Simulated scan of single mutants.
Amino acid sequence: MCQTIQRIGLCVLLPLACTLPAFAADLPAGFVRLAGVDPSIRQDIRYAGLENFLHRKAKGYDAPVCILTRQAAEALSSVQNVLAPEGLTLVVFDCYRPARAVADMGEWTGKGGPPDPQWYPAVKRNDLIAKGYIGELSTHSRGSTVDVAIAHADHRSAPKPACGTPDADTLDFGTGFDCFDPASETAHRPLTGDAAANRRKLLEAMRAGGFKNYAREWWHFTLANEPFPKQRFDFPVSAE
């Protein structure tokens, strides 16, 4: 117990150097499971399964569950409340990401390999960090970043993108989630079909909810007033 208290005290003094531990079987203070705040938001947590660029589960993902800071979860719920009357729903692909998962992804890139036509069709695996597609650190580990799209609430099928996640049934965004390609840049043009309008709709809805977009990825948003802007966490993603 004393070691835990000392560790927390150190993190208060040196937040940039800290990766905070889990507390028993529960979540650290300030974190919630999204389903407990808004169960209507669809969850499709990619790194807890095989359908991702690793082609395996990422370290630290013990369950396909979205965990966020309470502020981020409540802000996301406010966005859902705006979309729901239109027959739409948010779909989250990733939320809080343990620091060990970020390290796992970084180590994986170092093993090298050719482009992957589904996930990174125009770049070699060991160039994904240098090209900015995978970060050596991630805002996801601070707990207020979410990878998100919009889908029809009635689960109607949508066009399957050639690059990125294959079966999320989202609206057409031009690419799928985690398509590591310039076409995934939020403002990329030209886009076919309704993709540009759908990206604009997602961007405007998330901005109104208090989130800011990462321009390289149309799906990536961080709460502007996040509660842990200088801390990284490493507790596992788990079910209750």
Rank of each mutant, 00 (worst) to 15 (best):
P166R: 07
F177H: 10
P229W: 06
N213M: 11
A215T: 15
R216V: 12
P161T: 04
K201P: 03
P182N: 11
D169G: 10
E226T: 15
T165P: 00
G174Y: 02
R189D: 12
F221C: 05
D194K: 13
S157N: 07
V146M: 03
R156V: 14
A215Y: 14
C163Q: 02
G210D: 03
G210F: 01
A208I: 07
G210W: 00
A158L: 06
F211C: 04
D172W: 01
P161Q: 03
T175P: 02
T186A: 13
N225R: 13
D178F: 10
R189W: 13
R207F: 05
A183Y: 03
A158F: 03
C163D: 02
W219D: 05
L171R: 00
S157G: 07
T165N: 08
G164P: 01
V148W: 01
D172L: 04
Q231G: 06
Q231D: 09
H220E: 07
A151R: 00
E204C: 11
L202N: 00
A197R: 13
T145E: 07
R200P: 03
E185W: 15
A195F: 05
M206P: 00
G193I: 10
G174D: 04
E217N: 09
R232E: 10
H188N: 13
K230E: 12
D194W: 07
R189M: 13
G210V: 03
A151V: 04
G193P: 04
R156C: 12
A208R: 14
W218Q: 05
R189F: 14
P190V: 14
A195L: 07
E204M: 13
L171A: 06
A224N: 12
L171P: 00
N225P: 03
K201R: 15
H155T: 13
A153W: 02
W219Q: 07
L171N: 00
K160I: 13
K212T: 11
D167F: 12
T192M: 13
H188G: 08
G209M: 02
D172I: 02
G193V: 10
R199F: 06
T170Y: 01
G210E: 02
A168Q: 04
E226P: 03
H220K: 06
G193H: 08
A151E: 01
A197G: 12
G164M: 03
R199E: 05
A187N: 15
P229M: 07
D167G: 09
K201C: 09
R207V: 10
Y214S: 10
P227I: 09
R207K: 14
T186V: 13
H152R: 15
A151M: 05
